[in-house]
Write a protein that binds this DNA or RNA. Structure first.
Length: 560
RNA sequence: UCCCCGAUGGUGUAAUGGUAACACACCGGUUUUUGGUGCCGUUAUUCCAGGUUCGAGUCCUGGUCGGGGAACCA
């Protein structure tokens, strides 16, 4: 019936992506002594999302595949935006995905002293200078694409003078914004990033790790490549937007004559109906559109976790989307497929009624109750069975009864018989409506010889319904989520706030669940039979006030 | 206007000069005590124009289209 776990464990026979091909060529050529050492370098200024998850899977996954290790490095060169709170959240998310940073945990701020040394070295080589101009003046000299820039009047200061001024910058002798250190490359370079880029700036701001030790901070471009090099990273993998930066990193590495880390860029993930920008995600949080970074509708790793996504499903997803250089927009249905694929094999089946109406079995004795055996997971016999209490009064799904139906309707209706899952076949008798015409109760008779597993009734029921015993049911709130945006590409045109889906969250407060769920805890994802996959909300659920989140529906093949 | 990157079914990803394939989605059939799962099947793809070659998705030239590229951000 179901696939074996191995069948889902991708990555086995998959053709190599272009990075794997490069790595194998490097190994074959003996480059880096055949080593593979990668890193994942987040800036601790926000929460990780599904796009980062792809990057994590690529960098950690490749190292793992080729017998190497991965470093977790926090790129913390801008003290104004970074904090330890983010560091901790990022650590938690990476670990939850199931990756160990066996190469170690590092911080670019660990290298401030070394980077300062590199800068001094550049100055001594005549390859860097202190510029006293304002940012406006420097911008004006930068030129434009196709038009060369002009040299700064401070470009030809002597190494001695530069060194003295740079030391002064470090010593806090100059106010913020008055001086910067620039690499001396080529103001006419085709690549704008090579036109004497700024490498150090003055900031009288405390850093989350180095405190007040520094008042000058390296720019990202001056820190990133050298940090890789310091850590002897062999393959530095990043997104396409840094392609233009590679020549600059290479220039620093060659000029300083340090470890030749090589960067390879690949396309970042874009997901349909989803936002993938930290800044825009932050806006959703700040404007109260969502509950926080871990709102189950958020594409953040913490949001997906709270929603009920599993690490395995995200890793499977990352594997299936592949790695290439072309811009992409992955259909969210692939993410959902990956979740179902995992959960179908692993999630315990339970019964829950989200929109309950009474189902009364008229010919079932009022004082009788029996316990019926049911499978915990038909895809996994080793998951065992459990007993479900059954009685005369049950809860059934309002959607499972309709008065006017056609031939395609398999569920309950006047004149129809259906099977109650793991229980009996029942036959419609009559129903009760309220003043508005809504059905509140359905009355049936059961066939006592149709008991599940020992059915000798000979009756054929096309439909099977889920149900919960009224006497034993536990109440719960269930939150149904839908995509947060109406547009496939919410960032494409106009304000993404204009295409918010008003029904991205629907709260059902009167749900009836089978009693085994009374002690459900966050972390376990259940399949509510016929409905979808649900998990206990880690924030709002309490013992006496259960709250479940729907991770994803079951695929609905009903065309009726 | 200049530089860098890219272009293969609806969406992604392979094919490394030799029969364009796999997954998701879609549609249909089948199995089923979940209208789930499984199984089987259908539809549908090389941006354009030249060139090289016995043979081009792949190599060359030119074009078109898309993405990225100027911060005391990363």
């Amino acid at each position: 019936m179901s696939k074996t776990p191995e069948a889902a464990d991708e990555s086995k026979e998959r053709p190599l992506n272009f990075i794997e091909q490069k790595i194998e060529a490097d190994i074959a050529a003996g480059k880096h002594g055949g080593r593979v050492h990668t890193r994942f370098p987040p800036e601790p200024n926000g929460h990780l999302h599904i796009g980062h998850a792809k990057a994590i899977c690529v960098s950690f996954g490749l190292a793992e595949k080729y017998g190497g290790v991965t470093n977790l490095r926090f790129d913390d060169t801008n003290p104004e935006k970074e904090s330890t709170e983010y560091v901790n959240a990022i650590r938690e998310d990476v670990a939850w995905l199931g990756f160990d940073w066996k190469g170690g945990e590092f911080y670019t701020s660990d290298y401030f002293e070394q980077l300062y040394g590199f800068a001094c070295q550049l100055i001594k080589l005549g390859k860097a200078y202190v510029d006293d101009q304002s940012s406006e003046e420097m911008a004006a000299q930068k030129g434009a694409p196709g038009k060369p820039g002009t040299n700064s009047p401070f470009r030809d200061r002597s190494p001695e003078e530069n060194l003295k001024l740079f030391e002064g910058m470090k010593a806090g002798e100059f106010p913020e914004g008055t001086r910067v250190l620039r690499a001396k490359i080529d103001m006419a370079h085709d690549n704008m990033l090579m036109r004497d880029p700024l490498i150090y700036r003055i900031k009288f701001v405390a850093h989350h790790r180095t405190g007040e030790d520094w008042v000058i901070y390296p720019m990202y471009d001056f820190a990133h490549g050298q940090s890789d090099s310091i850590e002897n990273i062999t393959h530095s993998l990043c997104s396409l937007e840094f392609e233009n930066h590679r020549p600059l990193y290479d220039w620093f590495i060659q000029t300083l004559d340090i470890y030749p880390t090589e960067q390879t860029e690949f396309a970042r993930l874009n997901l349909s109906y989803t936002l993938m920008s930290k800044r825009k995600l932050l806006r959703l949080v700040e404007e109260g559109v969502v509950d926080g970074w871990d709102d189950p509708r958020m594409p953040t790793i913490s949001g997906l976790r709270r929603r009920g996504y599993t690490p395995q499903s995200i890793r499977t997803f990352a594997d299936r989307i592949g790695v290439a250089k072309r811009n992409n927009e992955i259909d969210v249905s692939l993410l959902e497929w990956a979740l179902r694929d995992d959960l179908n094999r692993t999630a315990p089946r339970v019964m829950g009624v989200l929109n309950p109406i009474k189902l009364v079995v008229l010919n079932y004795p009022e004082d009788k109750k029996e316990f019926l055996e049911t499978q915990n997971n038909p895809e996994d016999p080793s998951a065992g069975t459990r007993q479900m209490p059954f009685g005369r009064e049950l809860w059934m799904e309002a959607d499972d009864f309709k008065v006017d139906v056609n031939k395609k309707w398999f569920r309950l209706a006047p004149g129809r018989v259906v099977r109650l899952k793991s229980a009996y076949i029942v036959e419609y008798v009559d129903h009760v409506e309220d003043e508005s015409g809504a059905v509140t109760e359905v009355h049936v008779n059961y066939f006592s010889n149709s008991k599940s597993g020992q059915d000798v009734s000979g009756i054929k029921a096309k439909g099977t319904l889920h149900w919960v015993s009224c006497e034993d049911a536990v109440n719960a709130e269930v939150r149904l989520y839908d995509r947060m945006f109406l547009e496939s590409a919410p960032e494409a045109n106009g304000d993404f706030m204009d295409c918010l889906n008003p029904s991205s969250l629907e709260v059902r407060s009167n749900c009836k669940l089978e009693p085994s769920l009374a002690h459900a805890e966050p972390g376990t994802v259940y399949q509510f039979t016929r409905l979808g996959y649900f998990t206990v909300d880690s924030r709002y659920s309490e013992a006496e006030n259960l709250v479940f989140n729907r991770a994803v529906t079951l695929k609905d093949g009903w065309k009726g």
